[in-house]
């Protein structure tokens, strides 16, 4: 590669960092698979559905955050990327939650349309 002739100190440092990332990515992917396996099993476990639901939400959230934090490099990138993405994520999450609440029974007993 002709580009490799251009390597300077910063690139060597870069290489070492990239090697380190391999182990991080490997650990993250193992964790993702373990969590998915637990998710698949837990829905059949005869415990209170609220606990199942809660743990599903927590586990998906951990998986979601793990992918964006490590695989999508947010951990190593400027904070700006995280902020831009969070702007969308927060508004989207808020909208989904608000819509779900709007389609629930009203506490005052108003009929749902």
């Amino acid at each position: 590669m002709d580009a490799s002739q251009n390597t300077s100190n910063s690139v060597d440092h870069h290489l070492a960092e990239e090697h380190q990332k391999y182990f991080t990515f490997f650990n993250v992917s193992i964790a993702l698979i373990m969590l998915t396996a637990i998710e698949l099993v837990i829905v059949y476990v005869p415990i209170h559905p609220g606990i199942v639901m809660g743990s599903l939400v927590v586990m998906s959230l951990i998986k979601f955050l793990a992918v964006i934090w490590w695989f999508m490099h947010l951990r190593w990138d400027m904070i700006l990327c995280t902020l831009v993405f969070l702007s969308g994520l927060i508004i989207a999450t808020g909208t989904v939650i608000a819509l779900m609440l709007l389609f629930s029974e009203d506490p005052s007993g108003a009929p749902m349309i």
């Binding site: 831009v84 993405f85 508004i91 989207a92 989904v96 819509l99």
Partner: peptide
């Protein structure tokens, strides 16, 4: 990269709307 992150923020809303539609009708 910045434009891609902005696109992904937008895509959150995109899938958020679709997922809400599904969940509302399931509910």
């Amino acid at each position: 990269k910045l434009a891609m992150w902005a696109f992904l923020a937008s895509d959150c809303m995109f899938f958020g709307t679709l997922i809400s539609t599904h969940l509302i009708y399931r509910k």
